[in-house]
Design a binder for these strands. Structure first.
Lengths: 137, 137
DNA sequence: CTAGGTTGCGGGTATATGCCCTCATAATGC
DNA sequence: GCATTATGAGGGCATATACCCGCAACCTAG
């Protein structure tokens, strides 16, 4: 049997299914703050990388530039992100607002609790192992 | 340090990023057949589960019913899927067409090669381990 | 200092995804 | 047998995602 025949389960389909499942868990935990996991992740990245251009943000998050543009538009409309100054007139640099920073603080406990729940489900060492495997993909 | 503080990397964000990356790899491999990984996976499930209702298909794939409805509409328009008979008048049962079955056969080699490439990247035992971990999520 | 290439974004288009509401059909209780 | 409940789809709405194209601003050769 070839390896592929052995693995009749598609790695990609399995990844996608697990991602949907896990995303739903985080989304439910963050729902009371009016934010999705994708948005929480976006804001966290913006907080860490300070004022940042859309292109650089896209590179960091490995998302298409246009995707970043649209996603940022949503959190900007919500008041969590604002345009930031930039020397390059082409650049649309953005930064976290006070409201955005406060939201991240408010939501942190729920995010962390979910992290712990996932880690517990993965068992001892499983969480680190998962992150390592995912990073290798 | 709490477990959450240790794991400053969000499991969900890591999963989502890896899934985007891997999906892009499969999508590129399947592109010459005019099909995406998501569609390939959908067709494969329809082939295996024979004529099936949208609700059952949604349950099997763990997707929202409305999502399945839309995704099926796309592959149906492409001629890979057709409506099937059903006793329940409410049900929209569907089945693979000849074209759909042939497409799956044509695309198989490229899918399998991608599977092997991913397995190689994961190393010995890594692939099985990944599937096991994902199934546990 | 201008011409041409480069880079940064936005918009158009399409799929993928989920939630909610509505409608039609089935099943069930009385 | 009819009223109520349950089930199956579909449509509206919103976000997430990618690709391509065009425009504007930069930058660099000459």
């Amino acid at each position: 049997m070839t390896p592929a025949a052995l693995a009749s389960v598609c790695y990609c389909a399995a990844l996608r299914k697990a991602t949907r499942r896990v995303t739903a868990i985080y989304d439910r935990a963050l729902d009371k703050h009016g934010i999705s996991l994708a948005q929480y992740s976006l804001l966290r990245t913006i907080r860490r990388r300070g004022p940042i251009s859309l292109t650089e943000l896209a590179a960091v998050m490995e998302l298409d530039r246009s995707t970043i543009g649209r996603n940022v538009r949503v959190v900007e409309k919500a008041g969590w992100v604002r345009p930031a100054d930039s020397l390059d007139q082409r650049e649309a640099a953005i930064a976290l607002t006070e409201n955005g920073a406060e939201l991240l603080l408010r939501a942190y406990a729920d995010w962390a609790a979910t992290q712990d729940a996932i880690a517990a489900k993965l068992g001892a060492g499983g969480a680190e192992a998962l992150l390592e495997v995912l990073a290798g993909l």
